[in-house]
């Protein structure tokens, strides 16, 4: 579904991704793990068109999308839930969700999908008219995910959805990620919480200072000594 071939991405003179290649197949949950500053968010931003690769290719269902404007990439079916949620704090929950469907014209379909989002996140339904800025961190995460789903993505990019949330809520969010996957959305998940991410993922890539250093099936990585030492907190 998504194929990345040997991309280099820079911030000014600083190279943040060095020859990264990866692949995501339809229906998979793929996770990207790595330490702070490894380049995970940079990779997601490159896929969603916020950053342009200097070299290399990004192919979505065979079409090159590297360097395309973000809005055309959304239109092609990739939605990105950014790190830190980035909900529109000055707008209501409902307005945030409407903005998620900005490029869609099928009023009926939008209405139906909004209903589905409220089914997935009943907490949002109770707060339709509330300003997004006054939601709790967990609710904001739900809103950010719901907003991305409103675009009807075929590939969903999630950047650290568990950040700053209490363990119980993290579990809830991860259950919902699995539900989203089950209804047929392919998922690329970036996580600091490697244990949890590996537990729901099919495959994983490990990023270190701008390079992919390891990749494989999630269960193989979970039992790998190297990963245990570096990312799973010990032995």
């Amino acid at each position: 579904m998504l194929k990345i071939e040997d991309i280099n991405v820079y911030y000014g003179n600083i190279q943040a991704l060095k020859g990264v290649s990866m692949e995501i197949n339809k229906g998979e949950i793929v996770t990207l793990i790595g330490a702070n500053g490894a380049g995970k968010s940079t990779l997601l931003k490159t896929i969603s068109g916020l950053l342009k690769p200097k070299q290399g290719k990004v192919l979505f269902e065979g079409d090159p999308i590297g360097g395309k404007a973000a809005q055309s990439i959304v239109k092609m079916g990739i939605s990105h839930v950014p790190e830190g949620r980035r909900v529109f704090a000055n707008m209501t929950v409902a307005e945030n969700l409407e903005l998620g469907a900005y490029l869609r014209k099928d009023k009926e379909g939008i209405k139906k999908d909004m209903g589905k989002v409220y089914e997935l996140f009943p907490r949002l339904l109770e707060r339709i008219k509330q300003q997004a800025g006054t939601l709790s961190g967990g609710e904001q995460q739900m809103l950010a995910m719901g907003r991305a789903l409103m675009a009807k993505p075929r590939l969903l990019l999630l950047d650290e959805p568990s950040m700053g949330l209490a363990p119980l809520l993290v579990k809830q969010i991860f259950n919902i990620i699995q539900e989203i996957s089950e209804i047929g959305t392919t998922i690329l998940l970036v996580e600091q919480n490697a244990n949890l991410a590996l537990s729901i993922a099919d495959r994983a890539y490990v990023v270190e200072t701008g390079r992919i250093v390891l990749s494989g099936k999630a269960e193989d990585l979970t039992s790998s000594e190297e990963i245990k030492m570096a990312y799973l907190g010990g032995h």
Binding site: A69, H80, R86, F88, N90, L99, G100, A151
Partner: peptide, 16 residues
């Protein structure tokens, strides 16, 4: 309103 609040997030909604 979306662009003035957060233009990068607005881009992710597909806003030009």
């Amino acid at each position: 309103r979306a662009v003035s609040f957060d233009s990068e997030a607005a881009k992710l909604m597909g806003i030009n």
